[in-house]
């Protein structure tokens, strides 16, 4: 539920639809409470619109340019990192992946009944490390990280 002030500010800002505008306009002309708030806020609104900006000192631009002269001249980011280089690197990796896939498919015998999924042989026995305790620790760390992220996300939204 909007207050009279909020309705009048929206009306003055001009962000309302034609119907909403007509509705508020009717309220202003018929309701003395709306009329009073409107007169008051319109004056503040007009005063704000006519307010002038502050003027810095006469030497402001010169002072800025004196400082700027000491800095390295800026260069457009697109000239710093050429897109051609990025595309070339991407093309190289894509072609490599495609070539490996073609080679693998061409040399594999999928119809062979003796086909087995290759197993990963590591120098350590991974089963020793995957215990109920380690899984619990893993989930606990995950939950803590998720809560930290949620906290920072909510703080950002609140700000």
């Amino acid at each position: 539920m909007k207050t009279i002030d909020e309705e009048i500010w929206d009306y003055l800002d001009g962000g309302l639809t034609a119907d909403q505008k007509a509705e508020i306009s009717a309220k202003i002309s018929s309701d003395p409470a709306y009329q009073e708030v409107f007169t008051e806020l319109q004056e503040v609104h007009q005063l704000m619109k006519g307010a002038e900006l502050e003027e810095p000192s006469m030497s402001f631009t010169r002072n800025v340019m004196d400082q700027v002269k000491l800095e390295i001249a800026p260069i457009a980011l697109k000239t710093k990192v050429s897109k051609t280089i990025i595309y070339s690197i991407a093309a190289f990796f894509l072609l490599s992946i495609v070539a490996i896939m073609i080679y693998t498919i061409a040399n594999s015998t999928l119809s062979d009944e003796t086909f087995e999924v290759p197993s990963l042989k590591l120098p350590v026995n991974t089963q020793e490390f995957i215990t109920p305790t380690s899984i619990r620790i893993f989930f606990f760390v995950d939950i803590v990280l998720a809560l930290i992220y949620l906290d920072s996300f909510l703080r950002r939204k609140k700000a």
């Binding site: 900006l53 502050e54 003027e55 810095p56 402001f60 800025v64 700027v68 002269k69 001249a73 800026p74």
Partner: peptide, 26 residues
């Protein structure tokens, strides 16, 4: 123009926006 090396033109950008930036700083 500034990015192409004509850095003195930056003074025009400063002049255009200095009043508002200064007001915000105030």
């Amino acid at each position: 123009a500034v990015l192409e090396g004509n850095t003195t033109v930056y003074a025009d950008l400063v002049k255009r926006h200095q009043r508002f930036v200064f007001t915000m700083a105030m």
